[in-house]
Design a protein around this nucleic acid. Sequence first.
RNA 1: UCCGACAUAGCUCAGUGGUAGAGCAGGCGACUGUUAAUCGCCUGGUCGUAGGUUCAAGUCCUACUGUCGGAGCCA
Length: 430
Amino acid sequence: MSHVYIEKISAHEDQTVTLKGWIYNIRSSGKIHFLQLRDGTAIIQCVMGKNDVSEEIFESAKRLTQESSVEVTGVVRKDTRSALGYELHATGLKILHISEEYPITPKEHGTAFLMDHRHLWIRSRRQHAILRIRAEIIRAIRDYLDDNDFLLVDSPIFTPAACEGTSTLFETAYFSQKAYLTQSGQLYNEANAMAFGKVYCFGPTFRAEKSKTRRHLTEFWMVEPEVAFLELDGLMDLTESFVRYIVTRVLQNRQTELKEIERDTTQLEKITQPFPRLDYGEAVRQLHALGSDIVYGDDFGADDETMLTKQYETPILVNRYPAAIKAFYMKGDPAATDRALCVDMLAPEGYGEIIGGGQRQDDFATLLAAVHAHGLPQESMDWYLDLRRYGSVPHAGFGLGVERTVAWICGLPHVRETIPYPRMLEKLVP
RNA sequence: UCCGACAUAGCUCAGUGGUAGAGCAGGCGACUGUUAAUCGCCUGGUCGUAGGUUCAAGUCCUACUGUCGGAGCCA
């Protein structure tokens, strides 16, 4: 009897097959058992009538508990009563392990309890759907970049210094020195772009921010493309095309999962329209018209971001923020000296910033002054300054936060469900 | 770090200063089409911790711990 996966069951209609998995739920009417079997790919109902199997097997099925591991043999039948479209009419059952009392019951649970049992929670239907969508998003990210001639060049996790604010670094012992977990691959990416032209890095990044919000993790995944000879307008084109591709791929390949989590996909289908581009000054004017008390020159608060994005059905590209509130490596706007050539993509429906990026400072003297102005040690930045000594060119790049993107596409209230094992403030287990 | 709420059975929650409760899970039993199955019976408690007020505290007060939500910061 061949072992098949439930996901591929339609190819085996009317055949006898063996399924291997775990009991998701069991119901019985005395002379007929209904086993909900999950094998990691999907869930199928196995029907076991008293007359279809031996007395011994029928009796043994009564011992099954939630999450017990089994092998079920039977005939695949089409059945309209099943959500999957197929059922297995069982002819055999092999019990591998009877599960102890399983903590996650079919009824409701609180978030704290579920997070403490995250290693078991990921067996649930909803978590399956979310993590499959995450995997699709990651595949779409890689496919887009690989197919558009970006070269994957990895950046290190251990770094000697900060590239964002120094207050949010995780410090670790590194033999006789201190090392910090990377907050961004950005600085290395710029060196890689000078070497290869179009590059990206993709991996986990770490920020020791004491943030307790629905949008923050201390460990999160970020994809960061960086391109030589690219300027701000071209960068905005790139972010728009990139995000549109990701959403389209999820809509194409993960309809079942979107339905499972009850995502309203009409919102996602609107991303085919162009993304509005707002200059920072224009964004502030709009916010004032909407009743915000934001001061020109300040960064947007959470309320401002939500208020602004609710005006639009697609993500928006807010560009040219005040240079004073942006990182030291941003290039200034020649048309307005107090502004930086940067862009943030704000997702709709109040999901906030999913992309931050910009054109990098390519002038040696200006960058050196910025390093000093930010109080950064020049010796640890010397290699980065070299990029402006040896064939400096205009270049730009951005970072997209994977978990925020997953949260937006899935319509989730919190990023903690978008990653298998979220790392949050004081949260390290499991 | 700041502001707010909450902490009762394995889980989700009721509990009006006066005898500790329900649903789910678990155990036993019934049921040949169930879909978070249903029905009957049973098991299950240091009411977060430490103090205090009171004849009497799960309930009121204080501190601590933990969790959740929000702010700032950011992707």
